[in-house]
Write a protein that binds this DNA or RNA. Sequence first.
DNA 1: GTACATTTGTTCGTATGTATA
DNA 2: GTATACATACGAACAAATGTA
Lengths: 80, 80
Amino acid sequence: MSQRPVRTDGPVPVYVQIADYIEADIKAGRLRPHDRIPTENAMHAEWGVARTTARRAVNLLRERDLVYTVPQRGTFVSPQ
Amino acid sequence: MSQRPVRTDGPVPVYVQIADYIEADIKAGRLRPHDRIPTENAMHAEWGVARTTARRAVNLLRERDLVYTVPQRGTFVSPQ
DNA sequence: GTACATTTGTTCGTATGTATA
DNA sequence: GTATACATACGAACAAATGTA
């Protein structure tokens, strides 16, 4: 299903790989300001990772100021 | 109230224990086809577990094809 | 016709424990 | 010892639909 595999046997942590995928979507305009990024459960389903790992990817994107999270609503692409 | 305790300190996850209890009820005929199984809130009350944990038990029963869920109505024992 | 309670659906927040590299 | 990753389990808040009073 996913054209974008995550590798657990490589040097790059899974949560970084996922964050990089989403960052690429943002940079490419496939995700635009205020679009909702996939939920933690969606990432769990898409990549087969634990929800906690999906959270770490989101945290990383937040640290990069690429997204903002609204509790109980979702995580969205930052404006600009 | 409950003659059937759940144990959090054992090897079997709580949600599996609950699913197993309900499966036993179905197999024993205490719950029959199209009977409604306990709601998530009822499981919460009966076993003192979080609603999210009760949901996982229901999800497991659904994966076992023992029940089906009607949104806003409840979850019911599968026919046959 | 309206208001309320019930019930499942969804999503994020948080914590713990286990295993592995 | 630290970082990564998974599984489990608690909770909170809100949405949406249904059924009932």
